[in-house]
Nucleic acid binder design. Structure first.
Lengths: 158, 158
DNA sequence: TATTGTTATACTCTATAACTATA
DNA sequence: TATAGTTATAGAGTATAACAATA
């Protein structure tokens, strides 16, 4: 038998529950994880409202207007295989949101750039995603500043 | 033309950049979003190491041993359609990690429960996922406590 | 009639391996 | 030889609609 604990349902953190309350780092991470899970739903629904499949939305977000990037960079940012990027870009391109151009310096690479139409949609996407969700927006201003300062540290931003 | 800004590459936050520095809530959210993106990769690799596809891992995490839950609850927690859960559970069940049981109270519903084997794997999964990533673990203890306290507030945990 | 879960269908995303065209 | 991207393939996840069994 692995566990006889009575399993407090609805918290989903499971076994790290008691450890978390002794270790601030563990509990902070457990809370972060839960906050993170809640935002998944938000991301999917924003993408769907704009008619974008999830990875298409992630990709469009990466493509800043007037800043061509190679497909390899998209694969890296999406942390997926290059062969997937081919398909994702195919779908974005067939909707006229993105264009493939060749790189004069190296004719193997394909540079991606958003079209005018893609930039308009991207602007709506980035605007919606950048809007802080209730969990953050309703925090007192002092807490928002403190949270910002600590998060800067976690990401190594002095 | 939509934007003439010179587009600071590598930050991915894009247009909310300047607004973020004036608005702590926006910047906190932008940082949180980035932290969140970094953890995606971590989640996928932990799941893959344990031989679980992403949604299978999410599902296994929900199933606390000795606590049967209906498929509808899994669909709700995963925020996906019930028809998907059928397939995800089929795959977990075919590997002997999960079992479907009937609910004597309502013979339409199927209760899910992890098998012994499933509980062992789940314990490894939950253990790995619960381990704070470097971004949090390397934070000074005082910051970890502050972060924990603020995150409790965001999730309405007094 | 309404609800739980399944099936059928079609599309998106996924990695692997084999391929092409460049370098 | 090595690299950037494509194609082929097979599997996983997705929503919708039609369906069975039960309430």
């Amino acid at each position: 038998m692995l566990m006889t604990r009575s399993a407090a349902r609805g918290t989903a953190t499971g076994s790290s529950r008691r450890a978390a309350s002794r270790d601030p780092g563990r509990e902070a991470w457990a809370l972060l994880y839960e906050l993170l899970q809640r935002q998944r739903r938000r991301f999917f629904s924003i993408a769907a409202e704009l008619g974008l499949a999830p990875m298409q939305a992630h990709t469009l977000r990466l493509l800043e207007p007037e800043t061509p990037i190679p497909m390899s960079e998209v694969a890296e940012a999406l942390s997926c295989d290059a062969s997937n990027v081919t398909g994702i870009i195919d779908r974005l391109e067939s909707r006229g949101l993105v264009e493939r151009r060749s790189d004069p310096n190296d004719r193997r690479v394909r540079m991606l750039i958003v079209t005018r139409k893609g930039a308009v949609l991207r602007e709506r996407l980035v605007g919606r995603l950048g809007e802080p969700p209730a969990e953050v927006a309703l925090l007192p201003a002092a807490d928002q500043r403190t949270l910002r300062d600590i998060l800067r540290k976690t990401l190594g931003r002095p």
